[in-house]
Design a protein around this nucleic acid. Sequence first.
DNA 1: TTGAAGTTCTACGTCGCGTAGAAAACAACG
DNA 2: CGTTGTTTTCTACGCGACGTAGAACTTCAA
Lengths: 128, 128
Amino acid sequence: MASLGELERAVMDLLWAGHEAATANTLRDLLAQTTAAHGGAAGHEGKDLAVTTVLTVLSRLEKKGLVERERGMRPHRYQAVSSREDHTAELMHEVLGSAPDREAVLARFIGSVTESEAETLRKLLGHS
Amino acid sequence: MASLGELERAVMDLLWAGHEAATANTLRDLLAQTTAAHGGAAGHEGKDLAVTTVLTVLSRLEKKGLVERERGMRPHRYQAVSSREDHTAELMHEVLGSAPDREAVLARFIGSVTESEAETLRKLLGHS
DNA sequence: TTGAAGTTCTACGTCGCGTAGAAAACAACG
DNA sequence: CGTTGTTTTCTACGCGACGTAGAACTTCAA
């Protein structure tokens, strides 16, 4: 239950962008930004999204546990539950988790990371 | 375009099981095994699958590039294109690939692998 | 030739997702 | 308090993916 649709991803991108800054996003902000980002992408030229469309997507993302909504304030505030990096790492674990031979998968996996990434990994694993 | 449905996964599990042994799978084999494995799972008790059902799934998996079909022999032979481990590792790369800050994701990722897996990674990364 | 096994084509129901209208809830203003 | 503009909820349609399978065509063996 992890994969995102195109619009869902566009919205998450916005929310993730504001995650570090702990930005409280209102629907209006998101609508404007989403219309720009999503509409600007290939195949979606000039497509002005309806307010309810973004709302629906936000609700679905909330149900999926990716978005948290503060209902206290009147224009509700929407924000990503976790950072993009955390989410992606978690996704990787989900993918890996479904494998019987995790170590074999890891072997293949690190066989195709860039050298700089391998270096990063060495540093992070360094001190046992 | 990577995620698999429940039945698709069940079939892939069978094909992956035979991948190492380079086993050539006929439809009959798969039908029998799938009915056992899939039907035995939770929520699918005693569900006897139709031959065409498995065939359809195999066709879809073929279209997705996960299954290869030898059309030479009369009962066609079906087999997984790559091992489960390779496929899973590739999936992990797909997930990782969509991240702007790959190294940050990797940091989170290795932060939550088991110690034995970390050990394996150290070995694999050991000598640059 | 005939029949069983295998394969192709087509299709239906469900569900997730993009999309949005209708209506209800609400806040602010006169 | 009633009118009005904003925000949220409810409901729904179309499409594509997937589980499921019937109907019909192909092929091989007896």
